[in-house]
Computed example of a mutant assay.
Amino acid sequence: MTSTNRTLYNTLKDGIQNIVAGEKEKIEQQRFSLPVSYPDFCDLFIAFGTYCIFRRNQSHGFVIDENNEWLIQQLYYYVTNAPSFDGDLDKGIMLQGKYGCGKTVILETYSLLHNHIVKKFGLRLPLFTFIKSVTLQEQIIKQSVQSFTQKTLLIDEFGRELKTVQDYGNISRPISELLSVRSDLGVITHGTTNFTLETLSSDEFYGGMIGDRLKMMFNFITLKGDSRRK
């Protein structure tokens, strides 16, 4: 039996432990634990949600009610890294629900609140990029997939874009390719969608392989209620 060279072993062990620690730090840097109470979080969310709605030239304010209260609470658990979160804190959030039920406003409000905190206090955290899936696909075609692999994306209306596009005669799948790369890199992604995971995993959408990655990337959370649009 070959004996272990302890000096070599210790050098290799120290090396991999340093590498693992570096990767763990990268993961932690993607997350920020907001040090506020739940009532204060709700007050902030209502204020930023109202601002989000006003930017749409609508004069009514954001309201927390029986349809979105559970979701707001889950978002609070998520942004405070609380074990009470009903999902995996290392995954992003995909809000599902009917058309007009308020998914986009809630996710954009989350984006506005996060970015305001980062800018206000000069935190070394990535800003959220809130973008519709159709626009994201257009920008990938004009630039490259690599331009969007490291950004923290909040993809609105996920699944609404064309699944294949013609690029100088070649058929490409920009969003599928982006999701595959981001999944491999472990970059946090959030989104809203009108479709279920089963539908998104179908051949008419992204297919089973990407669908399997979606399960690894997202906590699928359903927002209840009908359209709030007036």
Rank of each mutant, 00 (worst) to 15 (best):
residue 213 R to V: 08
residue 140 I to F: 03
residue 183 S to T: 12
residue 119 K to E: 15
residue 67 N to M: 11
residue 47 A to Q: 12
residue 182 R to V: 12
residue 111 S to Q: 04
residue 169 G to W: 09
residue 228 R to K: 13
residue 174 P to F: 01
residue 207 G to F: 06
residue 40 D to S: 12
residue 219 N to Y: 07
residue 44 L to Q: 14
residue 139 Q to M: 11
residue 178 L to V: 11
residue 216 M to R: 07
residue 58 Q to F: 06
residue 186 G to A: 08
residue 137 Q to P: 03
residue 41 F to L: 08
residue 63 V to K: 03
residue 60 H to F: 12
residue 224 K to L: 06
residue 226 D to C: 00
residue 8 L to C: 01
residue 101 C to L: 05
residue 204 E to Q: 14
residue 176 S to R: 07
residue 201 S to A: 15
residue 3 S to P: 09
residue 116 H to A: 13
residue 204 E to N: 11
residue 91 K to E: 08
residue 114 H to M: 05
residue 81 N to K: 05
residue 175 I to A: 05
residue 5 N to E: 12
residue 165 V to W: 07
residue 132 K to H: 13
residue 139 Q to V: 01
residue 195 F to Q: 12
residue 190 H to K: 01
residue 67 N to P: 00
residue 184 D to S: 11
residue 128 F to P: 00
residue 19 I to E: 14
residue 30 Q to M: 13
residue 158 F to A: 07
residue 229 R to A: 05
residue 184 D to C: 08
residue 160 R to N: 13
residue 175 I to E: 14
residue 150 Q to C: 06
residue 98 K to E: 15
residue 171 I to D: 14
residue 224 K to M: 09
residue 74 Q to V: 06
residue 68 N to T: 01
residue 48 F to T: 04
residue 131 I to H: 01
residue 77 Y to N: 02
residue 79 V to C: 07
residue 216 M to G: 13
residue 224 K to H: 09
residue 209 M to T: 12
residue 187 V to Q: 11
residue 230 K to Y: 06
residue 4 T to C: 04
residue 51 Y to N: 08
residue 203 D to G: 02
residue 42 C to S: 09
residue 49 G to V: 07
residue 161 E to S: 03
residue 97 G to K: 03
residue 202 S to I: 08
residue 36 V to P: 05
residue 175 I to K: 02
residue 149 T to R: 07
residue 79 V to K: 01
residue 218 F to K: 01
residue 53 I to D: 04
residue 51 Y to K: 09
residue 29 Q to R: 13
residue 125 L to E: 06
residue 20 V to A: 12
residue 193 T to Y: 03
residue 166 Q to D: 15
residue 19 I to S: 10
residue 33 S to L: 06
residue 165 V to G: 05
residue 35 P to M: 10
residue 95 L to Q: 03
residue 10 N to H: 10
residue 139 Q to G: 00
residue 174 P to Q: 02
residue 136 L to G: 02
residue 151 K to Q: 15
residue 117 I to G: 02
residue 118 V to E: 05
residue 66 E to F: 02
residue 50 T to K: 01
residue 142 K to A: 14
residue 146 Q to I: 12
residue 78 Y to H: 00
residue 149 T to E: 15
residue 157 E to N: 13
residue 212 D to G: 12
residue 148 F to N: 04
residue 124 R to D: 15
residue 26 K to E: 15
residue 62 F to S: 05
residue 171 I to R: 10
residue 73 Q to M: 04
residue 127 L to N: 11
residue 204 E to F: 05
residue 184 D to W: 02
residue 131 I to R: 01
residue 3 S to D: 15
residue 83 P to N: 03
residue 5 N to A: 07
residue 6 R to H: 09
